[in-house]
């Protein structure tokens, strides 16, 4: 088990290999469909959202206000990442990301960007909204809530021990490609 602490260095990212289990401690920002399209269309992130060496989380959480008026995240699993494939390579490059957390894997362009710029795709267990919300220790801020609505807003999460699996590394490997090819070959035997 490897521990990643944000901001993550390029060396730490490049040392990760497909199949490694990691836990993440530090700051995560969420960003999903609306944020990716916004950045692709030339939008600028608000001050406060610093993702240099950071980790972007494909997530639309359930967040409520507690009795003291603080944000409390009550469910926060990953959303399907492949929808961001048209935008992700550019976002990795422009923001200087070292990690993207999501589920379901991403395509060739993202894999190439991970290799070129030193980023890893970290697969969280889809649907595990409670296990992952337990790792979110506080929610200091939310950005662009008005424009995008709660699930699509940029939430800042301070996390500890957040579990994920490296499925695309910074050395040109993708577990998703391997499993697809192997399962396709296997299926050919049964039809």
């Amino acid at each position: 088990m490897t521990t990643l602490t944000t901001p993550v260095s390029e060396a730490a990212t490049r040392a990760l290999k497909v199949g490694d289990e990691v836990t993440i401690t530090g700051t995560l920002f969420t960003g999903r469909d609306a944020v990716h399209k916004f950045l692709h269309d030339g939008g600028r992130l608000p001050p406060g959202v610093n993702l240099k060496g950071g980790i972007l989380y494909h997530c639309g959480p359930v967040v409520i206000k507690d009795g003291q008026g603080n944000w409390k995240c009550v469910a926060a699993g990953p959303t399907t990442s492949i929808r961001e494939e048209p935008y992700q390579a550019q976002v990795i490059r422009d923001l200087g990301l070292r990690g993207v957390i999501g589920k379901g894997g991403m395509g060739d362009r993202t894999m190439a960007a991970c290799k070129e710029y030193g980023c890893a795709y970290l697969h969280a267990v889809g649907g595990a909204a409670q296990v992952l919300a337990e790792c979110i220790k506080s929610v200091p801020n939310v950005y662009m809530m008005e424009e995008f609505g709660a699930p699509e807003a940029i939430w800042q999460f301070e996390v500890a021990g957040f579990p994920a699996i490296v499925t695309i590394d910074a050395n040109g490997n993708s577990l998703h490609k391997e499993i697809f090819a192997a399962s396709q070959a296997e299926l050919a035997k049964y039809i």
Partner: peptide, 16 residues
């Protein structure tokens, strides 16, 4: 673990 936590905390199994 997630199934047990969701039930005990009465919070959504999945955020979607």
């Amino acid at each position: 673990q997630n199934i047990a936590l969701a039930k005990n905390k009465s919070q959504p199994i999945c955020q979607d």
